[in-house]
């Protein structure tokens, strides 16, 4: 298991690169969010993403897949589902990992490499990518679900039906307009 040995050795460097890319990605245009204040409560986004990446990488290296990994993935994608307009942007942090690993391992690859292990590594990450897509969809659905729930909950509508409310009256000549774009 030579590859995993190398990964264990290079873990800190790989993680640092990955965090930098992922957090830089969490940005607005080309403005970057505060990474300095990485306090769990003071700056929850930076904290959640960076600690989540750490969990994911550690489990990949340890060749395990526990609940912690699923949770970490979900927490990150949850944030991304609100930030990114497209799922492709929301899950691309996992593709970045692939690139980083590829670059990193290339330096250490001896002639011929160790294809079996590389393949396994890539399959593991691919599986995570698929899960990330699922989570993204789940989060988007949740948002719409919440939206519809909120509208239904709005007692105002019920009251209106019960004829108990009467909004500010339309004056004569007013265009009867509807809210909403």
């Amino acid at each position: 298991m030579i590859i995993y040995d190398i990964l264990r050795q290079r873990r800190d460097i790989i993680l640092k690169q990955w965090k930098n890319i992922a957090l830089n990605q969490y940005s607005f245009g080309d403005f970057k969010i505060h990474k300095e204040n990485n306090n769990r409560f003071g700056n929850p986004v930076a904290y959640t993403i960076s600690s989540g990446l750490e969990t994911i990488l550690d489990e990949i290296i340890a060749e395990t897949h526990t609940v912690k990994l699923d949770d970490a993935l979900e927490e990150i994608v949850k944030i991304k589902s609100l930030q990114a307009e497209k799922p492709s942007i929301a899950v691309d942090f996992l593709f970045h990992l692939k690139n980083i690993l590829k670059n990193d391992l290339d330096d250490f690859r001896q002639d011929g490499g160790y294809p079996g292990e590389i393949e396994k590594l890539h399959t593991d990450i691919d599986n995570l990518i698929l899960s990330a897509f699922d989570i993204f969809m789940k989060c988007r659905e949740k948002i719409y679900d919440i939206k519809s729930k909120e509208i239904m909950k709005r007692s105002y509508r019920l009251l209106e039906r019960a004829n108990m409310v009467d909004p500010a009256p339309r004056r004569k000549g007013d265009v009867d307009d509807e809210i909403g774009c």
């Binding site: 290079r10 690169q17 890319i21 970057k32």
Partner: peptide, 22 residues
Amino acid sequence: KLKSEQLADIDYNPPSKDWMDV
């Protein structure tokens, strides 16, 4: 291809535009 160490040093990308121009 960027070497790992170099990549790790990239800490921020300065915004290219003044906020007034956004």
